[in-house]
Amino acid sequence: MLLKNTWNEFIKILSKPRSYLGVGALTLLIGIIIFAMKADGKSIISFVTASFEQTLTFNGHILNGYLIAFIILQMLIVHVPLLVALVTGDLIAGEAAMGTIRMLATKPISRTNIVLSKFIAGAAYTLFIIIWMGFLALFVSTALFGTGDVIVLNSDGLVILPEADVLWRFGAGFCVAFLSLLTVSSLSICLSAFAENSIGPIVATMSVIILFTIIGSLDVTVFDSIKPYLFTTHMVSWRSFFEDPVPWSTIRQSVIILVAHNVVLVAIAIVRFNKKDITS
């Protein structure tokens, strides 16, 4: 029954135009970034290497598909949560607004399973978004720009990763990015269980992300103790796979915190939905 209901939920997602809005926006954004890189990529790259180029010269195929995929992932991982929340924030609250939630609750399936099926359907949509992003970022970029070593700029300096050592990092990075977006999906589903219209959970999800991101980026010691527990701190942990050596303990910690967030948020949504007085 859970799987059947999940399938129904997924069909509901597919039938809504807003679900394609995210995919369309993502395609357009990635298309624009690839076009910008094709037109003026070298000057964009010089932003990374400028301070080093006074003394050093960088030779080789720097502007390649892998680097562009990395740039795309870095630029869009901040914006994709909105596209995810746009769909997942509507999953429970949208039904409440349309008045279909009462009918849904009369079906021979527990309320817990209703929430779980919505969570799984939301996860499937999030996975599709990530796969689509990965396809456009990695395959289209490499088809247009070829492959090569990747220059990554982080707070410690430049890391130049050899071409042969890059694909697994992208694979692992996309998995952690999926877990980050799944947390956004769980948050919006959780908030959706408290709302009667879909706008509220979407805006609330984005507000939480913005608030946590600002707290995380403020270099104030008073926030140092809470920063490790904010899910937004770990949303960029996919980037850790592009460090050398890979900080496995940090990644493990991020994965644990993101999974914990998912479990807690879905649990809250289940409890709330089970106690919800459905009157619409």
Binding site: L56, N59, E163, D244
Partner: peptide, 29 residues
């Protein structure tokens, strides 16, 4: 501030000042 593995390259020089480095990967000189 830079982490890079050792790399192979071919260097070409021609008088007076023609100079080129050719490598599969990224090299720093």
């Amino acid at each position: 501030m830079i982490k890079i593995l050792p790399n192979e390259a071919t260097i070409y020089f021609k008088q007076k000042d023609k100079f080129k480095v050719e490598s599969k990967g990224i090299t720093i000189l």
